[in-house]
Design a binder for these strands. Structure first.
Length: 189
DNA sequence: TCGCAGATATTCT
DNA sequence: GAATATCTGCGAG
């Protein structure tokens, strides 16, 4: 009896998936050690209608994964030193992804602290910190998240819908997406 | 609390 | 060949 999120969970509108990902459990298995945490903050990204997205200017070799089937990881390197962990959404051929920005660690805290060089105050409260704490790097790009291999997502806690906050995405003040206000960042307190 | 350097994959010219 | 990027940590005030 497994509670791993099925592919059809991811195969919908990015904003919907992002909102529903709050409170879900992100699980990572590294060298036999189980690391896990609840998702606390996410951002939704679309394709050609979203000027802030990697996929805004069409398909390239880097963002091709965003156009592929949902339920896969999309990890990329930025600023010469940071990794970002995204989950591909929407149907195949339609670009979309959800950036995981922050998790609340529940399992394997000691190991996470090691990966974070002993920094214990801010274990996984930022997109690049989260990747460091869970040792997510380029090798974890394009992994099927519906299989329990190295990293996957499970059902988590029930979220009180009124405790979900919405806002504009970090670093994006403009972008109107699909003619709506781009309130595509979701988080919990 | 705030501002900026850091170091490289990817894309644009 | 050059610019840019879904950010973090540290050092100054």
């Amino acid at each position: 009896m497994t509670m791993v999120l099925p592919r059809n969970f991811y195969c919908q509108d990015s904003a919907t998936v992002a909102r529903h990902l709050l409170g879900k459990r992100l699980v990572r298995l590294v060298d036999g050690v189980l690391l896990a945490g609840f998702i606390r903050e996410v951002e939704a990204y679309f394709g050609e209608n979203d000027s802030a997205s990697h996929a805004a200017k069409g398909k390239t070799s880097r963002n091709a994964i965003m156009f592929g089937p949902a339920g896969y990881s999309y990890v990329y390197f930025i600023y010469g030193m940071h990794f970002m962990f995204n989950i591909v959404t929407e149907e195949e051929g339609c670009a979309g992804a959800v950036l995981i920005r922050s998790v609340f660690p529940t399992h394997g805290l000691a190991t996470m602290r090691q990966f974070r060089n002993g920094n214990k105050k801010h274990l996984a409260d930022g997109p690049a910190k989260l990747c460091q704490a869970l040792r997510i790097d380029a090798r974890l790009n394009h992994i099927d998240l519906t299989k329990q291999e190295k990293i996957w997502l499970e059902e988590g806690v029930l979220i009180d819908q009124t405790s979900i906050h919405m806002g504009s995405r970090i670093g994006i003040h403009y972008a109107l997406v699909k003619d709506q206000r781009a309130l595509l960042r979701f988080w919990l307190n």
